[in-house]
Design a protein around this nucleic acid. Sequence first.
RNA 1: CGGAGCGUAGUUCAGAUGGCUAGAACGCACGCUUUGGGAGCGUGAGGUCGUGGGUUCAAGUCCCACCGCUCCGACCA
Length: 420
Amino acid sequence: MLYSKLFGKTLNIPIKKYDSINHQLLLKAGYIDQVASGIYTLLPLGKIVIDNIIEIIREELNQISAFEILMPSLHPKIYWEKTGRWENVDVLFKTKSQYGQLYALGPTHEEIVTPLVKKFVNSYKDLPLALYHISNKFRDEPRPKSGILRGREFIMKDLYSFHLTADDLKKYYQKVLGTYLKIFNRLCFFEIKITEASGGTFSDKFSHEFNVLTPSGEVNLFYCSKCSFAQNEEISKLREGSNCPKCHKGEIRFGKAIEIGNIFDLGTRFSQAFDLYVEDRNKKKVFLYMGCYGIGVTRILGALVEVFHDEKGIIWPKTVTPFKTHLIGLNLDDNDTFSRSNKIYQLLVNNSIPTLFDDRTKVSFGKKLTDADLIGIPIQIIISKKNRDKIELKIRKNSKTVFVDESQLLKKISEYYHQE
RNA sequence: CGGAGCGUAGUUCAGAUGGCUAGAACGCACGCUUUGGGAGCGUGAGGUCGUGGGUUCAAGUCCCACCGCUCCGACCA
């Protein structure tokens, strides 16, 4: 990708314009554009990162035999009345067609997926079943905040599972819990706190949140500093400095976190509302046990920036970075340097290394480096007249620089992306 | 939904107690020069001062209402 042609350039806004880091940096670096409070457009760079996040989620969910579908965002009122949630969910966006029909803009999809499954599942032999989809969700938040961490419209992955017995559900719930840890590990959230929380309007049982510890989060929790155990403040009887029920004593801490995922044991609440049942081996009518499992995709984009940045800008983890390398051509007015830069760019492209090439000719070198640091691609490759035939590789994370020959370039990049 | 702050060029902002033709920086267009950490010079384009009402000889500036954004709180399946 040629930076000169890229839609969505870096902006010259002061660093203190917005309180939250993700808002500042994503806006300034050209990943998002704000349409209104809590409503954002993903610019090309942001869209690529989101797609990378989604691909990781998709790969892992397909490993546990979940099918991807896509359900609508317009939900006729009658579906939400059946579960009593038309009136009881105060962040529910409601809209009216010109012909007078009322719809909810889906904040979640139990009301759609349950009747869907009823149409196709007639036997216990069809179970277990797991369906997921990734779509825009809507919440009529009274106050959106913290950039893209809490918006009125956002992308979420939701997975729903259907089981013959509570025990089957419990097993699958644990399986998803493991899969979530894998996903978040691949997304480079290495310190996830699995947090016991309330079930909210989903369920009267407990749920589990997946929380990333960071001061910018809005979840208050008590957690163990030695393991992944945690409890949401709203249900917790733990205190700071008290004993962790799973390991050591005196390891409980208080902290703020961003919730990037959650899982709920729904029991039979929704299957009863929609009369979703099968007959078991003994010809006994059984309402299906359901679980639902969410991951906030847009929120992950924000959380990654909150966790991975420094005073210069974003520092993308290798697994989600929009490009593998950021090629910076200096002295592009010089014919030799220009053709060498283009040659390196072609080399990278031909070897399937996604590269952002800063090919701007009228921009000072300082500006190019500042922009590169802001944008946050892990490896910067600098070609300049001064470097002659050497290629400069600079690691964004620690500013370490090495000079290599063209023949070593691909090997060095590959090494970086495959090391721990 | 309570509280606070803000709304002026594409962007970020300056325009004290009302007063002549509304400014700067960055960005943009053209030209020249320049090139290792946000380059320089010159020329130029770009504004219903959030919207509506009011006070006044005169409103970007004062008053009222509304809209919008940010932050604190409440809320947050």
